[in-house]
Design a binder for these strands. Structure first.
Lengths: 369, 369
DNA sequence: CTGAAAGCGCTAACAC
DNA sequence: GTGTTAGCGCTTTCAG
């Protein structure tokens, strides 16, 4: 299995069971064209200093042999293009592709390659995603959902930009000002005259949703979720904000899907029929809440106002159109790429000043609140 | 060589920083730890035959130097993992991430890497995307929107699986049975009692939408679009299907966005107020059509039925919920990956039997039709 | 214009 | 246990 035939030539020998015939190398092409390897290089890379006729002959030989330069050999000898890993928990939630799209676009502009890992479906974690990406990339941008330190350790000196979580020892991080978001939303609802407010948080994976509990802010320690464990960072911000302004806020949790949020909202409305203002963890889940409100025969926003979070295009297509705490996702993508760029070029020091960004949501008023 | 910006390593010419200009190699680590390179290899790769104490010393040295094995050298010496390029026109349309998610998941299961290129935003074409991907990957899966031959030429012998377009000389292809889809939808509408049918096609980029024209099927040659140029393959199928069963079908075109479709639908309803059944190019555009119908005070489906195409989750969140010609996108992703797998292992011959799949939509009945 | 050297950084074999 | 020897396939020098 060392040398063996390199035939591969005019399409013959593609036997049924074999597969994996040895790939043609630059030497095969050189031999076939009767030239040296450098001439092949020159021909393949459109370099000057080669007679057109020779070039054509070489290219033809290459074509016939199905020759493709090894990207490894090439990368080894020329400093290769940077490739950045993009760790995404779930491409199925429109939030992430909107972000990814922006990252891919800007990375491409810089000549970077983007290796995408959608780690959610296999039930993997962010750290596992980084582990998978690590041998292949020069840097990582990702929604890791925690464990930034561990991920950075895997990457060594290579930059890691984490989103929506404390940067920890990561080279850089982008977080969102949920306190500001919560205050904005809650104030808006209050100004509208809503009195019985609720926040639907995302349940941690594995949380028991059997009987979604609920708390009044100011009761249990913020950070403690109704059922078990901790609330999301967003949930904590809402609880904090409500407590600070003396508002009562019912917090319930739901798995991260529209269908689940619909169910949870339905139950919420049964438990607390007077609920007249709801903020939801994200827009997709808010869509589910809207459905539940419609199911229960309530008018939105007249009977109950709804505010989502994310600002994805979906919101505009719903009925009523969703008022939401919007993030400019192209902006977030840009911030991540620029941060990484600074880290890669050395104009920014890992963990140094300017490597932790705090972005704000802004309230986009549409119909639902 | 025009650009010499390669330098993957931590940027050159960083004024303020300390040493660390050139990336550490295995020799640096070996020297620092006072061992040979082979020992470093053994330590880094958790190979047997090394004293734990030595291993620890080496790993510490590696950590201190920020050593990361070169993926190129590594790939060169061991046959590296296959990496497949995924060319996607627009991650912003939920259809594509749903597909991409499936591809990434299944590719990851096989140990492949996925290099994603969302080529739409930069105004690039599918071929350009392949060109960009080519040096980095062993195969490509993509929605190229035509030019499969050219793309395959760029890739040489490396497999290319194209979707939603004729395979041409591509190694493999997946197409959709739009004739079946059109017939299914049209029949359903007819059975509902709809008489004045319309189909909203996607406009080719650059098509003049100033005054969307309309044709009656059976008029102009199928394949000719109302305004200029050709219809999409879907449009042609609808025109053909309508003509075959003697139904009148108004075809209008709209750019590929919900907002544009909303406008176009509005105008359609002014031009042909009696329209009582509409099929739309995709679900996102159908959402826009639904909005326009609501704007005009029409009830759906009572006054006018609407059928979308794609089957993305968005449809369930709309009001009314969207009846649609659905594709199982996880299935499509699986088909693409399995096709590629066959091509890569040699169990399938490029362009040979089994390399061109034809998948069918099925009508998912919800509320809108 | 073309060819012949010399590595890029790493790991598989064998030595020791 | 550890070090030494070969290359992997390609592009850079630098000669011819």
């Amino acid at each position: 299995m060392t040398t063996s035939s390199g035939e591969t030539s005019s399409g013959l020998g593609q036997g049924a069971s074999t597969g994996a015939s040895k790939r043609a190398t630059i030497l095969d092409v050189a031999a076939a064209a009767g030239v040296s390897r450098q001439t092949v290089t020159r021909a393949m890379n459109a370099m000057p200093g080669i007679r057109p006729e020779t070039r054509a002959r070489v290219q033809e030989a290459a074509r016939q042999l199905g020759y493709t330069p090894s990207r490894f050999a090439k990368g080894l000898v020329q400093g290769a293009r940077t490739s950045v890993g993009l760790a995404i928990p779930d491409l199925t939630n429109p939030y992430y592709p909107a972000f990814a799209s922006s990252v891919v676009e800007l990375a491409t502009q810089r000549g970077w390659h983007v290796v995408m890992d959608d780690y959610g479906h296999g039930g993997a974690t962010g750290v596992e995603s980084v582990q998978h990406l690590a041998p292949q990339v020069d840097a990582v941008i990702g929604y890791l959902g925690g464990a930034a330190d561990e991920a950075q350790a895997i990457l060594g000196r290579r930059p890691l930009v984490v989103l929506d979580q404390p940067a920890g020892s990561a080279s850089g991080g982008i977080t969102f000002d949920y306190d500001h978001a919560a205050q904005t939303a809650l104030e808006h609802l209050q100004a509208r005259g809503c009195r019985q407010l609720a926040y639907i948080d995302r349940a941690w994976a594995g949380a028991d949703l059997g009987a979604p509990g609920s708390v009044r802010a100011g009761g249990p320690t913020p950070g403690t979720d109704p059922v078990r464990g901790v609330m999301t960072v967003r949930g904590q911000a809402f609880a904090r904000s409500a407590a600070a302004s003396g508002m009562a806020l019912t917090v319930v949790v739901s798995p991260e899907s529209a269908a689940a949020a619909r169910q949870v909202t339905r139950r919420l409305l049964e438990d607390r029929p007077g609920t007249d203002g709801i903020v939801v963890f994200n827009d997709v889940m808010a869509a589910g809440a809207l459905k539940a409100l419609a199911d229960s025969g309530r008018a939105v926003p007249a009977d109950c106002a709804v505010i989502g979070m994310d600002g994805i295009p979906l919101g505009e297509l719903l009925t009523p159109e969703l008022t939401t705490l919007a993030l400019d996702l192209r902006e977030v993508g840009r911030a991540a790429v620029e941060l990484l760029d600074g880290l890669l070029t050395g104009s920014l020091d890992p963990g140094g000043p300017g490597t932790e960004l705090l972005l704000r949501h802004h309230l986009v008023l549409r119909q639902s609140a």
